[in-house]
Simulated scan of single mutants.
Amino acid sequence: MLTNDANTGETKAGSSQRVYRGILRDLEEGRMVPGQRLAETELAALYGVGRNAVREAIQRLSGRGVIDLNPHRSPAIRLLSMDETLEVLEVAEAMTALATRSAAMHYHEDQHGELLRSTLAMVIEADVHDEPGMFSRARRHFYRALLTIGGNRELQRLFPAISMHIIHAQYQGRQLRSIRLADYRSIVDAIVRRDSVTAEKAGHDHVRHVRQIIMATPRRP
């Protein structure tokens, strides 16, 4: 495992933030996986920080639902049961539909056209390259664009807290990426037409499609 040199001039908050973002990035790009145990010493070496910064980042990620803490075992990346997955998707469906409807209601071509189309183009390019980490980053930018266009500050605050990043890491595959790309095209089409009813339906349909594929996925023994 590669390590980084510690930056002794960095503040504790900055060091903790480096670990926090690093774990999220490594989870998104497949270098960490749900269920993986985490060792403080290895994380400190990997991100070039002290163990206190690692502990602080782990506590923050636990509060966000990314890491499971157990007093008798080392921390682990959260692994969702099927029931937990369906609960997350239930919340995600409602919030995604709200995000797509809000984006359609507030969309203006001169203000938002380039942003929306460029983020969709990122998703298309990532799909062509068939690289999961690249697709995950593009998907994140796509949703960020929807939230920016919609302008709902409370939704912008709450949306990242949904545990979809765990679902994305836990359930991968070409079929899921293909359905996401097709659904994103439908969402964009409705938004640019400022058709909030169709955009809301497209948001609902997207999460339902993801749920159907996940439920059909063979479960691990």
Rank of each mutant, 00 (worst) to 15 (best):
S118C: 12
D110L: 12
A57G: 15
E114D: 15
E56R: 14
A92M: 11
T96S: 08
G35S: 05
S74V: 00
L38W: 07
E90D: 09
E125W: 09
G50T: 01
L80N: 05
V66H: 08
F135N: 03
S81Y: 07
V54N: 07
T100C: 08
V66A: 11
T85D: 02
N52A: 10
Y143F: 15
V88E: 08
A138Q: 08
N152D: 13
V123H: 01
S74E: 00
Q111F: 07
L46P: 10
V123M: 04
A53D: 15
A94Q: 07
Q59P: 04
E90T: 06
A121E: 09
G50Q: 04
Y47L: 06
L61W: 07
L120E: 04
M82P: 08
T41F: 07
M122Y: 09
P75W: 01
A121R: 12
P132K: 13
R37S: 13
A39T: 04
R60Q: 14
V123W: 00
I77F: 01
L89W: 03
L158G: 07
L158A: 13
A145T: 05
L69H: 00
Y47H: 07
A44L: 00
L116M: 03
H106D: 02
R139S: 14
P71Y: 02
E87I: 02
L147P: 05
E56H: 13
L43K: 11
G151Y: 00
I67C: 02
T119Y: 03
E90A: 03
I124Q: 15
E87M: 05
Y143L: 04
M122P: 01
A126Q: 02
G113C: 09
R117N: 13
V88I: 13
E131V: 11
R117E: 11
L116N: 00
L115I: 03
M134K: 11
L61S: 10
V49D: 04
M105G: 14
L89G: 01
E154R: 14
I58V: 14
G113W: 11
H112N: 04
T85W: 00
M122R: 10
Q36Y: 02
I149F: 00
A94T: 07
A57E: 15
L116C: 03
T96C: 06
R64Q: 04
L61V: 05
A126L: 08
R157W: 15
L61Q: 07
M134T: 08
P75Y: 05
H106R: 01
T100F: 03
H112G: 01
L146R: 01
A145H: 04
H72S: 12
E87G: 07
E109G: 09
H72F: 12
G151S: 06
F135G: 00
V123P: 00
Y107W: 08
L120Q: 09
H141N: 14
L80Y: 02
T41K: 08
H141R: 15
P132R: 15
M122T: 10
S81W: 04
S74M: 00
E87Q: 09
R73E: 14
